[in-house]
Amino acid sequence: MQAGRPVDPHPQHKVPSPARIDLRLPPAKKTPKYCRYPTGKGASIGTEKNMLTSTPPVISVGALAARIANGAKVVLPPDYSGCAMAVVAELMRRRVRDLHLIGAPVIGFQADQLIGAGCVAGIEAAAITLGEHGLAPRFTAALKRGEIEMWDATCPAIHAGLQASEKGVPFMPMRGLIGSDLLRVRPDWKVIDNPLAEDGKRDPIAIIPAIRPDIALFHAAKADAHGNIWIGIRRELMLMAHASKSTLVTVEEIVEGNLLDDPALAAGTISSLYVTALAVAPHGAAPIGLADCYDADGAALAGYATAARTADGFRDWLDRHLERALVPA
């Protein structure tokens, strides 16, 4: 069994679990290699033509979304981080199917919209919420009807699972959890006796299997010509990228030079080593907002939360939203 793929704790449900759905990546010819550091020398903004070089290609938002196959296991950031909303719109336009979403560690509008559009088979998160705009209505409705699988978690368990993947180890130990019903609904989480405990002392401790997403998807303020991504203090995005098999990023802009040359910027930069492909999407986190770039559009978010209370309201919202959203090049 592949590490990090949860055992289906709810076999009575008829919807396909992530253990059974197709988790393959897109065909190999579309998967770029990203195993070498860019040398800087001769590295340039990539295109589809040179995607087998070490510099991640810059492609359109539509082409970026096209790299997310049906059944992919995708890790997404919380609303306070960097959400690639332009790509989410493309996924809904394409009606991608059977995604397994992981919130790192909680998730909001991205999940609710993708669930409402019928794109999601299962979700793992410590919470699904629209924050000050209330409960996530399409998530709640889909769960009630048994349309999606749920893997309830707690924030540090998601972090621990991603850290295990980041380190290439099968699990991470974690305090807490013992006595929580989360352990009943997460049979993939185990409790072991600490093998390093003092002699004769019992010390039960939970272990969380590595979470190895197919894809990390997020939005950031800027990339450079080498494909390095500046994320500042939003370092859960770095954890997501380190832990995932591939990383797809939208950015507000691509800047001249090399972000790794300046130590002040390099500390908040994800090296292109981890970046598979990127697209430029100005205002790509709207209407959720991007810290220090632009604020959330409260009226748009409230409008969504109201519309999504019913399936019909959501469909009307989706039609209007996709008309407004970027058309893929």
């Binding site: 709810h10 560690p105 909680v106 998160a125 410590a126 919470a127 699904i128 919420t129 409960l135 996530a136 998530f139 709640t140 769960l143 009630k144 048994g146 699988e149 749920m150 309830d152 978690a153 707690t154 924030c155 540090p156 368990a157 974690m174 305090r175 807490g176 959890l177 929580s180 019903d181 989360l182 009943r184 609904v185």
Partner: peptide
């Protein structure tokens, strides 16, 4: 009833960090 999980009567957002922070 927990046996019907995850088809709750009323769903709340989720446990956030509680299952850890309450302990430490």
């Amino acid at each position: 009833d927990i046996e019907t999980y995850p088809r709750h009567q009323q769903r709340f957002p989720g446990s956030f960090g509680s299952a850890y922070l309450y302990f430490v």
